[in-house]
């Protein structure tokens, strides 16, 4: 009878074959936990701790300060412009790459990745070089009384550039995997280009699109380097939230700095929660598609 209990199911056997000794597992998990505690949890908690250290009144005063409110408004405005622009660009680029064959496709994919590989400071400097007073278009812009650098348009440009890859990178593999057959089927059945996009393509990519948009938004609100170079740090006018935090911190106004920073940290937490939710939904969606 002992032989009856001996054979294990294939799954269990495979699991055991793949499993490391207990101490290695404990060590790896422990190491990860220590790392996360040191570099993530403690800083995150300290942000909120420092923000509320001098009481809720100080916290509220810091985030209702006119300069802080202006910074929050500006940050929201920038995100409200940059995210839709990148949605448009991301879908267009992913569509072109996934559904058409053309020369220079790989180059285009590489170019989309460029903002990830270039230091944000450099991206900012490029815009100063092009649109700044001493830049290529500087004198022309000055003559026509248009301000891009040290003004909101510059910040939008820099933010759009830095956040370009998020949506496109998310959609390209998804759309490549789905292929063009469903679109072809729709067109053969008489659907117009817009009907095909709206009723067939969009529903198939909506979770990926949302996921990309949320990451894009988080970065658009949090971008520091590129924005710092082009903004000019004019309080109440071209100061975004991250820049405002820096200014307050440099003025030794720690409570206010951490108060504004806590809003950004909160944004990160909300983003994380949304991202997890979407990943979960997306997984369900993909399982449906694959079965």
């Amino acid at each position: 009878m002992t032989a009856m209990t001996y054979p294990l199911s294939a799954d269990v056997q495979k699991q055991q074959a793949m499993q490391e000794p207990a101490w290695i597992r404990m060590f790896l998990i422990g190491l990860t936990l220590i790392f996360l505690t040191l570099f993530l949890f403690i800083p995150l908690i300290s942000v909120f701790y420092e923000a509320f250290k001098k009481g809720a009144d100080v916290y509220l005063a810091a985030i209702t300060d006119p300069d802080a409110v202006a910074a929050i408004k500006l940050t929201l405005t920038i995100a409200a412009i940059a995210v839709p622009l990148n949605l448009l660009f991301g879908v267009a680029a992913a569509w072109a790459i996934a559904k058409f064959e053309f020369r220079g496709k790989n180059l285009l994919i590489t170019l989309i990745d460029l903002p990830f590989s270039v230091s944000p400071v450099v991206s900012g400097l490029i815009y100063v070089l092009v649109f700044g007073l001493q830049g290529w278009f500087g004198s022309w812009l000055a003559e026509h009384d248009m301000k891009i650098i040290f003004a909101v348009p510059g910040i939008v440009l820099a933010t759009v550039f830095v956040t370009v890859p998020f949506i496109a990178r998310e959609l390209i593999p998804l759309m490549q995997e789905q292929g063009t057959e469903e679109e072809e089927a729709a067109v053969v059945l008489g659907a117009s280009g817009w009907q095909t996009f709206y009723q067939v393509t969009l529903p198939n990519i909506k979770w990926g699109l949302l996921y990309g948009a949320i990451l894009c938004n988080a970065r658009a609100m949090g971008e520091f380097g590129a924005v710092s170079v082009v903004s000019g740090h004019i309080r109440g006018s071209t100061n975004t939230m991250p820049l405002h935090v820096e200014i307050l911190y440099n003025e030794y106004n720690f409570a206010a700095a951490f108060a504004v920073a806590s809003l950004l940290a909160l944004l990160a937490l909300v983003t994380l929660a949304l991202k997890t939710l979407i990943e979960f939904r997306n997984q369900q969606h993909q399982q449906r598609g694959h079965e």
Binding site: E181, E182, A185, Q199, V200, P203
Partner: peptide
Amino acid sequence: FQHYALFRNMTIFENVAFGLRVR
């Protein structure tokens, strides 16, 4: 199509109705 190319986000009914609905 060889791999059916059914619209995965639509029910079977809506799949068949698609060609009529887009007119």
